[in-house]
Simulated scan of single mutants.
Amino acid sequence: MTVTIFHNPDCGTSRNTLAMIRQSGVEPLVIAYLTNPPDRARILALVRAAGIGLRQAIRQKGTPYADLGLDNPALTNDDLLDAIAAHPILLNRPFVETPRGVRLCRPSELVLDILENPDIGPFSKEDGEVIIDEQGKRLA
């Protein structure tokens, strides 16, 4: 099974998602998208496969979103893709692609919906939030 994660190692959500994938028994293809950003076609394919709009795939917090005026509703997808190409940090993370689908995994536990083996055993996020308890019950 091929699993790909568009990962930012500085992001806790991305690290938690990667940990859940690995705990499922899969070593994913990890794409450090800030240094190896996907091209326009790949971004659009990910967004469409995830069932979201391009605007939903843009991160506002900790990015130049406001400075670039990306809140302007008149901007086209081409305008937004140009901004992401110039500033890859604008692409929200982590996107995960598996044979079962594509998700923007915010929150990180959304990855469980597309893993072949979502029964990963007990799991807590870095901040201590329990996602799966000792009995294997998904809490989030």
Score class of each variant (00 low, 15 high):
residue 80 L to Y: 03
residue 28 P to E: 00
residue 69 G to C: 08
residue 139 L to S: 09
residue 63 T to R: 07
residue 80 L to A: 01
residue 107 P to D: 00
residue 123 F to A: 06
residue 10 D to W: 13
residue 106 R to M: 09
residue 83 A to S: 11
residue 44 L to H: 01
residue 68 L to P: 11
residue 139 L to D: 05
residue 34 L to G: 14
residue 120 I to H: 07
residue 139 L to M: 14
residue 68 L to Q: 11
residue 11 C to Y: 03
residue 84 I to L: 07
residue 13 T to A: 05
residue 140 A to V: 13
residue 8 N to T: 13
residue 123 F to Y: 14
residue 70 L to T: 11
residue 24 S to V: 03
residue 71 D to P: 08
residue 56 Q to M: 11
residue 80 L to N: 00
residue 66 A to P: 03
residue 118 P to F: 00
residue 54 L to E: 01
residue 102 V to W: 06
residue 126 E to Q: 15
residue 11 C to I: 02
residue 105 C to S: 11
residue 102 V to F: 07
residue 58 I to G: 02
residue 54 L to Y: 01
residue 68 L to E: 12
residue 98 T to Q: 04
residue 24 S to H: 04
residue 94 P to N: 12
residue 55 R to N: 04
residue 36 N to P: 03
residue 23 Q to F: 13
residue 90 L to F: 04
residue 93 R to Y: 06
residue 121 G to R: 04
residue 109 E to C: 02
residue 8 N to C: 06
residue 7 H to M: 02
residue 67 D to E: 15
residue 57 A to G: 10
residue 97 E to M: 10
residue 99 P to F: 00
residue 113 D to N: 12
residue 87 H to S: 11
residue 23 Q to D: 00
residue 50 A to P: 15
residue 115 L to W: 08
residue 53 G to A: 09
residue 102 V to K: 05
residue 126 E to A: 14
residue 112 L to G: 09
residue 136 G to S: 00
residue 131 I to W: 12
residue 34 L to H: 13
residue 21 I to N: 03
residue 9 P to A: 01
residue 140 A to R: 15
residue 115 L to I: 02
residue 117 N to G: 01
residue 100 R to W: 15
residue 43 I to P: 03
residue 78 D to E: 15
residue 15 R to S: 08
residue 1 M to S: 12
residue 26 V to T: 15
residue 27 E to C: 08
residue 110 L to G: 03
residue 74 A to M: 09
residue 106 R to H: 12
residue 104 L to F: 09
residue 19 A to I: 01
residue 88 P to E: 02
residue 32 A to I: 00
residue 73 P to L: 07
residue 96 V to L: 07
residue 90 L to D: 06
residue 83 A to D: 02
residue 136 G to V: 00
residue 126 E to M: 15
residue 62 G to T: 05
residue 2 T to M: 12
residue 20 M to W: 14
residue 120 I to T: 05
residue 88 P to V: 01
residue 86 A to N: 11
residue 50 A to L: 05
residue 50 A to D: 14
residue 38 P to V: 08
residue 138 R to M: 06
residue 115 L to G: 08
residue 75 L to R: 13
residue 33 Y to M: 11
residue 20 M to D: 12
residue 12 G to S: 13
residue 65 Y to E: 03
residue 88 P to T: 03
residue 71 D to T: 04
residue 107 P to R: 00
residue 21 I to W: 06
residue 50 A to S: 15
residue 58 I to W: 04
residue 120 I to Q: 02
residue 94 P to Y: 06
residue 58 I to A: 01
residue 128 G to V: 12
residue 13 T to P: 07
residue 103 R to T: 13
residue 130 V to Q: 09
residue 78 D to M: 08
residue 3 V to W: 06
residue 111 V to Y: 14
residue 25 G to W: 13
residue 101 G to P: 11
residue 49 A to V: 05
residue 93 R to M: 08
residue 29 L to K: 11
residue 132 I to P: 05
residue 47 V to R: 07
residue 13 T to M: 02
residue 29 L to D: 04
residue 20 M to A: 03
residue 45 A to N: 14
residue 69 G to Y: 09
residue 52 I to S: 02
residue 112 L to F: 10
residue 89 I to T: 10
residue 4 T to W: 01
residue 29 L to M: 01
residue 12 G to V: 09
residue 132 I to H: 02
residue 96 V to W: 02
residue 103 R to S: 06
